[in-house]
Amino acid sequence: MLGSGIIKGLAVTAKNFVGSYYDPARMTTVEYPEQPTVLPENYRNFPFLVSENATDPMGTLRCVACQICEKECPPQCIIIEKSKDKKPDANGKMQLYPAVFGIDTSVCMSCQICVEVCPFDAIKMDKVFEIAATDRFLDLYLNREQLAKPNTYYHQIHPEEAAEVDGRLTADRKAAEEKAKATAAAKAAAPVAAPKPADSAVAPKPASPAVKPQDEPRRLVSPKPGEGGSPLGEGGPAKSS
């Protein structure tokens, strides 16, 4: 019958109209901003720099200014300048640090490639999306003070991923310590006929941190002997995935 198709269609719209009052499958909008949506764990927006300690963010950045992300960034929105001096990192190893680290978020396209290529787990994706600014250049350019966020924040926004990263870093750190211990023991064994195993075993002990995702100052203050002069980029929390 002519017009039956239209009537059938109207029945569908009527069903959807009525359904939108009680059926959650048909009412999918949320009243933003009163009612925020829950962002999935993997949500990414702009990168931030992970620092180990909230009280001293600039001193505990994981970033060692290796400039890999700067080179790999497709729109070239990262700028890094290496420091002239070295500072002890979370492992107590002397490392360079970024004297300048800037991200131009007006250029950044949130592709996450910097996160993927970072061998130090130093840069991660943030979840902040309500960013508005009045100056299109200066306000959207984030320098390292603005970018640095503590590890606890990382745990808040990406709990599973952060736990996995922390576990990996701790394991690496432990492995490095074992190695240091072994080399220390070997060194101790070589010149002295009777080495004291207690000495070499005790020395690195405070360095082994607990697998705890909090912002305890996990940084060793004094560099370990035998590791202080190791070349940049060798060992440490580096792990290329």
């Binding site: 764990e41 996450q112 490639i113």
Partner: peptide, 19 residues
């Protein structure tokens, strides 16, 4: 579509620019 995009977002981190 939004349901599919939600899936993409929870997997890849972005609704449309999945990469």
């Amino acid at each position: 579509r939004e349901k599919i995009l939600d899936l993409f977002e929870s997997l890849s981190g972005s609704r449309m620019m999945c990469n």
